[in-house]
Amino acid sequence: MNLTIKYFGMLAEVTQCQEEVFAFSQERISDLLKALYMKYPELEEKEFQVAQNNQIVTTDNRIDHSEIALLPPFAGG
């Protein structure tokens, strides 16, 4: 499956892109994070949450949406 991964704020500085298409066939968010840490080792040091279908998910969640967003700490207001 082709996933679109979105990166925001300081995470986009690490990946040098705001989004990318990532070919991925495993089932869980934790598997995806492992793959992303391989590609971007610096990402593992960063604090972030993962959103799927506009909801925060845990690393145990299954990937069931083609858009996954990595969200650094919020700073609204």
Binding site: F8, G9, M10, A51, A69, L71, P72, P73, F74, A75, G76, G77
Partner: peptide, 27 residues
């Protein structure tokens, strides 16, 4: 409302200093 927005809405803030360096704001 203010507390909920700060805690739950994915908004990110890049604090730009006078010397053009920056850091990322955290609520």
């Amino acid at each position: 409302l203010v507390n909920e927005v700060k805690a739950k809405v994915p908004i990110f803030g890049k604090e730009v200093f006078e010397d053009a360096t920056h850091q990322w704001k955290v609520n």
